[in-house]
Simulated assay, not measured.
Amino acid sequence: MTDGEHTDRVQLLSADALRRTVRDIFAAAGCAGDEAARIADNLVDANLTGHDSHGVVRVPLYVDWLRSGFVLAGQTARVVTDGGSFAVLDGCRGFGQTIAAQAVELGIERALEHGTCVVALRNAGHIGRVGAFAETAIRAGLVSIHFVNVSDSPLVAPFGAVEKRFSTAPFAAGVPLPGQPVVLDFATSLVAEGKVQVASYGGKPLPPDALISDEGELSGDPRVLYGDFGSADLRRASSGTGAIRAFGEHKGSGLALMCELLAGALTGGGGSGPVGPEFRGISNGMLSIYVSPSRLGTQDEFERIGREYLDWVLAARPIDPAVPVLAPGQPEERTREARLATGIPLPTDTWTAICRTAENVGAVPSR
């Protein structure tokens, strides 16, 4: 299909057209041109890698948060503590695509200088696909580890519970092996909340056990999380009574708790709850660790041992000969290549919601 063609439920748009649309929406909504472009690049890149949950489906909600004052345009991360090889930054509720990029830039700069750096970021707007920041560190030759939480956003039930207590609490890590960098990036919930959004707009259905109702019944119906909604309405988890389930039973639940304690408590940004009577909007916390193999003096051994081991892992005989074993990050590479060539598939309801948002701010969608 060509750019803009669609079926009853999905249509394809080029990355360039989608990027222009998102950029123009945020510029019209009050962001400076460079910030609008940064948000557009980050969201469209998520779609290109197949992480539609962190892509342009977020546009209507981001604009709603901006208009409500829950996220602020044009902010710069404020240094709270600076210890050289460690720092605490306050995002001042700026757009995560701006604030997290500043935090990552600082972490990379300091790790290249000192060999390692720990950056504790708090009060950033939604930062999008965390793996993008691990990729940035890889390009600088650094290993990185990222623990993330979302304050005031309980969405996930702990193992054995039916009530929301955790955010989706993402975790990411990047390893710069020669020829095949490894990027691990996932939510500690069984599905990211954005995947529930995508499914609610007519995209890929959820697994039938992704959600749990307040009565303990497993479900794949987004209404368990959002309550009733119209096709192009904003999705709000506060309107539903159910929760997303943690992945991996007690193991995923335990990792989610660690993300909340490290990214929420240690950074000083706050946990996913309990939510106070006056909702101020969600914010991300992120604890990032950067390590330079060259400054550790292990660069040669690291690359040799790491690549030999990775190759051995990938050479394992697959269950299905037509489906090879892949390293974390390889599916994203393949999806990016395919979507750049054929277009990004969007559920029709997602595109309708984006077009409605564009109309509301006075922007014109590109096709």
Rank of each mutant, 00 (worst) to 15 (best):
R235D: 07
S239G: 05
R236W: 08
G240C: 04
L225H: 06
L225A: 05
Y226H: 13
S239N: 15
I244E: 15
S238E: 14
P222C: 01
D233P: 01
S239Q: 15
L234M: 09
L218E: 06
S219D: 05
G216F: 02
A232N: 09
E215N: 10
S231H: 14
I244Y: 12
D221S: 00
D221A: 03
D228W: 04
T241W: 01
A237Y: 12
P222H: 01
G242C: 08
S239H: 15
G220I: 04
D228S: 14
R223Y: 01
G230I: 10
I212A: 02
L211H: 05
R235W: 07
S239C: 12
G227A: 05
E217V: 13
R236Q: 07
I244L: 15
D233V: 08
S219P: 00
R223F: 00
T241K: 15
G230S: 10
G220P: 10
E215L: 10
R235M: 10
F229P: 07
Y226L: 02
R235S: 08
P222D: 06
D221N: 09
L211M: 07
V224C: 02
R236D: 06
R236G: 01
R236K: 14
A232S: 14
A232V: 14
R235I: 05
A237F: 11
S213A: 04
L234W: 09
S213I: 00
D233E: 08
I212V: 14
G240A: 09
D214M: 03
A243C: 10
F229D: 01
D233L: 03
P222V: 00
G220S: 04
F229N: 09
S219W: 04
R236H: 13
R223H: 02
L225R: 07
S231I: 11
D228N: 11
G230D: 11
A237S: 15
D214F: 00
S238H: 12
D228R: 11
L225M: 10
I212G: 03
S231E: 15
L234N: 12
S239E: 15
G230Y: 10
D214H: 10
G220K: 09
G227Y: 08
S238N: 12
L225P: 11
A232K: 12
E215Q: 13
D228H: 10
S238V: 12
G230L: 10
S219A: 09
Y226I: 00
G227M: 05
A232L: 04
R235L: 13
G227F: 12
G216E: 06
G242F: 07
A237M: 01
F229A: 08
G227E: 03
I212S: 03
D221C: 03
S213M: 03
G230Q: 11
L218S: 09
L211K: 02
R236N: 12
G242W: 10
A243P: 14
E217G: 02
I244V: 15
G227S: 09
S213H: 03
S239P: 00
G230C: 06
A243E: 13
S238K: 13
A237N: 07
F229S: 09
L218M: 04
E215P: 00
S219F: 06
D214K: 06
G230A: 15
T241Q: 15
D214R: 05
S231A: 15
D228K: 11
S219R: 05
A243G: 14
A237K: 08
V224L: 03
G220W: 01
